[in-house]
Computed example of a mutant assay.
Amino acid sequence: MKVALHAVSGRHPAAAASAAPALDGVDLEIGSGEQLAVIGPSGAGKTTLLHLVACALRPSSGTVLLEDRDPWTLGGGALRRVRGSLFLAPQVPPLPPRQRVVTAVLAGRLPQVSLWHSLRSLVYPTGIAQADAALSRFDLSDKLFARVDRLSGGERQRVGLARALLSQARLLLVDEPLSALDPARGAQAVATLTQAARESGATLVATLHDVPMALQSFPRIVGMRAGRVVFDLPAADVTAQLLQDLYAQEAQSEPVLPVDALDAARLPVAMTCR
């Protein structure tokens, strides 16, 4: 799915009218099937960007286009169909605690199935093999019939990502998929997401605090700060100085961006934003 943002600004619905917008005049174009990571310090507007693209938040100004159409000009039914063609994976997946993992994963197919099919699946899940296959890509097939409230935080996060694989979405919007994962599981999760997107031809946009992982796994990097796009470059062109400037405020309180280390082989050391 092709995405274009033209001078887009937006703020959280609960924010005061006098508050600065979380996103401020952003221009961004994403080609169909492209994969990119959005990085930047906390409060940069990364999550707001995903919500605006997902039609979960209406822009206060500017235009968001999906396949050259402004979804907010469509009728209710057409807007629901557009939303059904994309998948937004929040940092904390909304998984009912007493639900079985198989049901939680199969919920990713809800926009593509009938009401009767979805109700029937609550009683006896249909598509168990597909759910198991998605979970196995995250080493979670042994949790297929476990209850969600028996999972660790990292396991819940991976269940949310497995649900994305079953969504058949043309646009995958993934918000901080590594926040509860150790480095090995994080690398596995990102590799699985990028491979699955390539296999299906879906566009993939992920926000990441793990800058080394972003540079190693995504061909295009968008750096955001204070609601604006600071740079939009191929990963190979993102320099240590660009990152130092992007995270300058964090670096003042703690030296998380040593320039020599960042220049070495696409950031081999872990870096997190406080």
Rank of each mutant, 00 (worst) to 15 (best):
S121R: 10
S32N: 11
R120H: 02
V102S: 02
G62W: 11
A78Q: 15
P41V: 01
G40Q: 13
V102H: 03
T63C: 03
P59M: 01
T63L: 00
R120Y: 00
S60M: 09
G76L: 06
I39D: 02
G84C: 09
L50G: 07
W116D: 09
P94I: 10
L28P: 07
T47Y: 08
I39Y: 09
K46W: 07
L74W: 07
R83S: 06
G33Q: 03
R81Q: 15
A89L: 12
E67A: 15
P111M: 14
A107H: 06
T126F: 01
P96V: 10
L49P: 03
S32W: 04
R58H: 06
D27M: 01
G108A: 14
G77V: 13
A54H: 02
P41Y: 03
S85H: 05
L28Y: 03
P96L: 14
V101F: 07
P41R: 05
L110P: 03
R69F: 03
S121L: 07
P41T: 02
V53F: 01
G77L: 11
S85K: 10
A54T: 03
A37W: 06
R69L: 10
G33D: 05
L28F: 06
G76A: 15
A104F: 05
T48P: 06
P59W: 00
L28W: 15
R83Y: 02
A78T: 03
I39H: 11
L50Q: 09
L86T: 05
L115M: 11
I30L: 10
P90T: 08
R80I: 02
L115W: 15
P93W: 04
T47M: 03
L28K: 11
V113F: 01
R83M: 10
G127T: 12
V82M: 10
P97D: 14
G62D: 09
G62N: 09
V53P: 02
G75H: 04
G40C: 05
G84V: 12
E34H: 10
V92I: 12
L88V: 05
T63S: 03
T63K: 10
A56W: 00
W72N: 01
P93M: 11
G76Q: 07
V64R: 08
T63M: 03
I39T: 08
G33A: 08
K46V: 05
T103P: 06
S121D: 15
I30M: 00
T103R: 14
S61K: 14
G75Y: 09
G25L: 05
Q112H: 07
G84Q: 09
V92A: 00
P97Y: 11
G33K: 06
Q35F: 01
A56E: 15
V82Y: 04
L49Q: 08
P96I: 12
G45D: 11
P90C: 08
L36P: 00
G33F: 07
L28S: 09
S60Y: 00
E34Q: 13
S114G: 12
S42P: 08
A54G: 12
G43N: 12
T103L: 14
S60R: 13
